[in-house]
Design a binder for these strands. Structure first.
Lengths: 192, 192
DNA sequence: TTCATTTCTTGTCCTAGTTCAATGCTTTAC
DNA sequence: GTAAAGCATTGAACTAGGACAAGAAATGAA
């Protein structure tokens, strides 16, 4: 059960087997059916979830009811609202399972225990956030500088498995274009 | 000279005066004239700069020569390409002073020294990145979900001092709209 | 003070992408 | 197995914002 998280998170063998074992005892296994809201606007996010199996979306609904998908997460990704989790403040986001999911959970308490027991994990999580920030920055740049078609091609190149798993209108919402226009882009591409 | 960085970075008095003093000896003071490139695409970013005085922009130029401003930074902000800095890989970004600047610099070496000597700083820098990530996420959402006028109003609300200091076309580039259209938005707002 | 450079504005025309509505196609739920 | 709901596609009409061009205003350098 822990193989994937151990190889993914503790990649470069900076950890002793005791440390990894401790890490594994800290994690809470959880199964969640599809279409479950793990977090709602206004809640304080009390988890960081590593996905063993399944697919999840994180999204924002603005004052006009307009929905923007902030992140898709599949196997071996983490999902959380970090700001809400760390600062214990109400989230502005929703997190919903799109498929039945198997998760490994850290809570604020267990994460705190982990970090104070094995401080080397600080670095792991900092790298995680850092990579997140880079990815978010690249996405912002693409959102501003690229056409709908370019964004879609970039998306399927970067996340080739996701289009097969999630409804197309979610991808449109992630890319910041209308579902109808994405459909038109796709038929145009198919004709070439 | 160090007052502002000490109150800003070490806010909650988690540090002893020796620790703060050590922090200050680590920082390198630097003056840079306006219109200086601190980082170019392809360089490895070797600094995290805290701005004592001045104004800086960080930007990306895509394959079509299209420019996107990723960040403005003024007094009491940090600026760097974190990904390039930490992973020592070539940057895709440019960083340029817009005014004469006074900076306090961390290099990979001095930061490493700081963190190994006073590990509590790990937390400070993690919080910094975390807030950065939140801000970037909000900006992405606004970029997708808001009209040009809404984005501009949001911008001047969030960063009221910046419009007086930087050329308008830079703000347009930050917002992801053309300079001409921003001008039209502004004249429309002025008429109301 | 002047000439040059950069920035801002305004107008015209154009297009990428939106909105709305209709239709058919897939899932899902009993 | 069928009804209902959710999805994807297509077309027609519309619009926010872009591209280009030309002039005005501001800034700066000598």
């Amino acid at each position: 059960m822990f193989e994937s998280i151990n190889t993914n998170v503790c990649k470069k063998n900076e950890f002793t087997s005791e440390e990894i074992e401790y890490f594994n005892t800290i994690l809470q296994y959880k199964e969640v059916p599809k279409k479950t809201l793990l977090l709602q606007e206004g809640d304080i996010c009390n988890f960081e979830a590593y996905i063993l199996k399944g697919c999840i979306r994180k999204y924002y609904i603005n004052e006009n009811g307009f929905e923007v998908i902030v992140q898709f997460a599949v196997e071996d990704w983490w999902i959380s609202d970090i700001a809400s989790f760390h600062e214990k403040k109400p989230s502005k986001l929703f997190i919903e399972t799109l498929e039945d999911c198997q998760l490994l959970i850290l809570t604020p308490e267990t994460k705190e225990m982990l970090l104070s027991t094995v401080p080397k994990f600080e670095r792991i999580f900092r790298l995680l956030i850092q990579r997140n920030l880079s990815a978010m920055q690249n996405r912002l740049i693409d959102t501003i500088a690229k056409s709908a078609q370019e964004k879609y091609l970039e998306f399927i190149k970067l996340y080739p498995t996701i289009p097969q798993r999630v409804a197309q209108h979610y991808i449109a919402s992630y890319l910041g274009i209308s579902a109808e226009f994405l459909s038109k882009v796709r038929t145009k591409l198919a004709k070439q």
